[in-house]
Write a protein that binds this DNA or RNA. Structure first.
Length: 484
RNA sequence: GGCGCCAUGGUGUAAUUGGUUAACACGCCGCCCUCUCAAGGCGGAGAGUUCGGGUUCGAUCCCCGAUGGCGCUACCA
């Protein structure tokens, strides 16, 4: 069974927003780490900020995780339901003299802070309540006076920890504030709830964003005060936008689920994310495409880099096309069906025809949405003609007439193979004294509604004689926009 | 402002841990292929490793400083 040596990690999102890419990557790294070493991944919802937390956001986070294929072994636990643990922990700290009651009001604090800043002093809490006799404080509290509980930072010395990715990080205690553990309303602050839970859940590794480095000494001090075993901290560099500032809404999509909406294959997104701030090292020289099993096998904390990474949409797009191309049609189909559902599109072909069409189209797909938009003509007769394509290749009435005539050739022809359709068209072109390319381009638009498509004769074979004849003939009645 | 962290082409990462013409991928440009667009093949531009000092026979790699970026600096998480 589980022993002290099996790693226990957690992903602890705050449901104050959807699952964003930074959070997703933290979740991914924790998941890869846990799966790599047969550890346990715990999901914990940090919802102690009642103002900003919501059940919808929790659901959104879970949806994002499921989409990415990240599962967890325990939880989700909600901090809002574990308030007793935090209060007990605060009491323990109080009893051992590591914490004290603070009767300063929020207004007083703000006032003093402003004054300190104005005077050019560091705006740290002045610790005035730290000298109140504990017994006096207890009396004041029982008499109903509102108070918070603050942690008493040691007077001198330093607090340090050995980060698995950044190495030794040290802070002077004089720089650390006597932060609030428990607010006057009895709700814990993040600093208390994280360590109370991390200790209670017996976590061995804390893998989280580098934005928490500065918070870590406050937590280390609590572990020490509580006599709890210190976990390994591993801070992961942040993900930045193209302008190298922290990724935010300004940069466009930051919600993981919006990438699903853009037609990204989840496995591609995961692969892309894994390589943002992590590298499998030179043993995997020149390789970038890794399935989830490979990522799990390869993942290690020491492959995590220290510098922030810029999120590059072009690279993501490349991963996406690679995955679409590599997936067998059967694997792509359910993902495509989702797009069809969302678009309200119903394919009017047999399953085999659909699979064949997917195989034909996937080398040219940029994302999953293409199958519900520009590729519709391959799955149904209900599709639209791209006006630009029509204008470009079907403006010429003579061409349209020839295509109509060509459709008769196909109709009466015996064979209808890739080779025969091409031979027929080229012979027809020569006979009519027109360049084959003109008829090919025109046919392409007539058959697919698009100027871009796979090789025309492969398309014909895919559509079948009936449809080809019918669509080519239909073109003669078409009057292009702007055509006179 | 204070404290902390980081720094390799535009982007993501490599460089057997001091010895390489600094590699690969994305992106970009050109050529080939060609019925369109991709793909593919071939070729190219783009960093002397932010800058300045050290240490060393020798620094991307070690030390110091500067600069820049990011993070933290709440009774948010």
């Amino acid at each position: 069974m589980s022993s002290a040596s099996t790693p226990r990690v957690r992903f602890a999102p705050s449901p104050t927003g959807y699952l964003h890419v930074g959070g997703a990557r933290t979740a991914l790294f924790n998941w890869l780490f846990a799966r790599h070493c047969g550890g346990t991944l715990i999901l914990r919802i940090e919802d102690t900020d009642f103002e900003r937390s919501s059940e919808e956001m929790v659901e959104g986070i879970l949806v994002g995780m499921r989409w990415l294929g990240i599962d967890w072994d325990d939880g989700p636990f909600y901090q809002s339901q574990r308030l007793d643990l935090y209060r007990q922990t605060a009491e323990k700290l109080l009893a051992s003299g590591h914490a004290y009651h603070c009767f300063c009001t929020k207004e007083e604090l703000e006032q003093r802070r402003a004054a300190a800043i104005a005077a050019g002093r560091p705006p740290m809490y002045d610790r005035r309540c730290r000298s109140i006799d504990p017994n006096v404080a207890a009396e004041r509290k029982t008499s109903g006076e509102a108070c918070a509980i603050r942690f008493a930072i040691p007077e001198g010395g330093n607090t340090s920890f050995d980060d698995a990715v950044f190495g030794r990080v040290e802070f002077a205690n004089s720089e650390i504030e006597d932060f609030v553990l428990l607010r006057s309303d009895g709700i814990p602050t993040y600093h208390l709830s994280v360590v109370a839970d991390d200790i209670d859940m017996r976590l061995t590794h804390i893998i989280r964003g580098a934005d928490h480095i500065s918070n870590t000494p406050k937590q280390v001090l609590q572990y020490q005060a509580l006599g709890a075993p210190m976990p390994v901290f591993a801070h992961v560099p942040l993900i930045l936008g193209p302008d190298k500032t922290r990724l935010s809404k300004r940069h466009g999509a930051t919600s993981v689920i919006s990438y699903k909406d853009m037609g990204i294959v989840p496995e591609a997104f995961r692969n892309f994310l894994a390589l943002l701030g992590w590298s499998p090292g030179p043993s995997q020289k020149d390789r970038e495409i890794f399935g989830s099993d490979e990522l799990i096998q390869l993942f290690s904390l020491d492959g995590i880099s220290k510098s922030n990474a810029v999120f590059d949409n072009d690279k993501l797009a490349w991963f996406n096309t690679e995955y679409i191309r590599a997936y067998p049609a059967e694997k792509l189909l359910p993902l495509i069906e989702e797009e069809w559902d969302r678009a309200g599109f119903t394919p009017a072909r047999s399953r085999d025809e659909i699979l064949a069409a997917i195989d034909l189209l996937k080398p040219r797909a940029r994302n999953l949405k293409d199958f519900a938009t520009v590729f519709r003509a391959y799955f149904s007769d209900d599709f639209e003609y791209d006006p630009a394509a029509v204008t470009k290749f079907l403006s010429d009435g003579a061409v349209r007439a020839l295509l109509s005539e060509l459709s008769h050739r196909y109709a009466v022809g015996a064979d209808f193979t890739e080779a025969s359709t091409e031979a027929t068209l080229r012979a027809f072109a020569e006979e009519k004294g027109i360049k084959a390319g003109q008829l090919i381009n025109g046919s392409r638009v007539a058959l697919t509604g698009q100027a871009v498509a796979p090789s025309l004769f492969a398309v014909m074979a895919q559509l079948g004689k009936e449809r080809v004849v019918q669509r080519l003939a239909a073109v003669d009645k078409m009057v292009p926009i702007g055509d006179v």
